[in-house]
């Protein structure tokens, strides 16, 4: 029979502290972004950069985590890795949704168009759709869907470098990857604070989502046990 101990967070204090830091940070972040100077030729909508770019990085991190955990799951067949991959994929969908909404809003403000069919935008959309495909397979895939989903997770992780270097591989209207390394020093604190806050948020949501996965696995095990008893 499955483990039936109550599945609570062992020590909630670090979790609460991290949640408070993330909440406070996301209130302070707009002030930092507002004080940072605007680059030449950019308008006020450039401030979207401070949460569009870190959310894209977090999406990459989530999909890579999903791919790595899926690979380990396929090698070891340990359910904990499968649950980790599942939690990461859900977070990739969330941060992908943020990227896919903040990006077009910035595009509308700067290019006067919500969407342009160019390499960076299309490859990012495809990456987000791979994460959605993973979640849908897990939800509706039926028996054996863990291995199929793991394959999708690995495929998504392999796609990340392609999305990242798409601005160099193809002619694109999207800003190049050199924007961040050549950023004005006065803009860096806001960007890196934002990136740190997104990573804290990723960790928090990951732990909560993983707990949800464990609860679901426990429920499935209990259902099997109940069926055995009734039979």
């Amino acid at each position: 029979m499955a483990e039936t101990k109550p599945d609570k967070i062992a020590n909630p204090i670090p979790f609460i502290i991290a949640a408070v830091i993330a909440g406070a940070g996301f209130i302070v972040l707009p002030l930092m972004a507002f004080r940072a100077p605007l680059p030449d030729g950019m308008f006020f909508s450039q401030k979207i950069f401070y949460y569009h770019v870190p959310s894209a990085w977090t999406m990459f991190l989530a999909i890579i985590t999903c791919g790595v955990c899926s690979g380990i799951y396929l090698a070891k067949r340990d359910d904990r890795w499968d649950q980790a991959a599942q939690a990461s994929a859900a977070i990739a969908v969330l941060f992908g949704a943020i990227v896919m909404t903040t990006g077009p809003i910035w595009a509308k403000a700067h290019w006067s168009k919500y969407w342009i069919w160019e390499a960076r935008l299309v490859s990012s959309l495809l990456l987000w759709m791979i994460a959605i495909a993973y979640v849908l397979v897990r939800r509706y895939g039926g028996p054996g869907m863990e291995r199929l989903a793991a394959g999708i997770g690995i495929f998504g992780a392999v796609d990340v470098p392609l999305v990242y270097w798409s601005t160099q591989l193809w002619r694109t209207q999207h800003p190049q990857n050199t924007v961040v390394p050549t950023l004005d020093n006065r803009m860096r604190p806001a960007l890196y604070t934002s990136a740190l806050l997104f990573i804290i948020l990723f960790t928090l949501i990951y732990s909560v989502r993983k707990r949800l996965g464990r609860s679901r696995a426990r429920l499935e095990a209990l259902e099997l046990a109940a069926e055995d008893l009734e039979a």
């Binding site: 308008f43 909508s45 949460y51 569009h52 959310s55 969330l94 903040t102 809003i105 707990r211 609860s215």
Partner: peptide
């Protein structure tokens, strides 16, 4: 321009809060 920045920030928060609330409700149901 300010409106675009505020809308984008609002959507970001709404998505995060919505996801966390969804997980909380799902966890309670489970």
């Amino acid at each position: 321009q300010k409106q675009f920045v505020l809308i984008a920030y609002g959507i970001m928060w709404a998505l995060v809060v919505g996801f966390v609330v969804f997980m909380f409700l799902r966890q309670r149901k489970l």
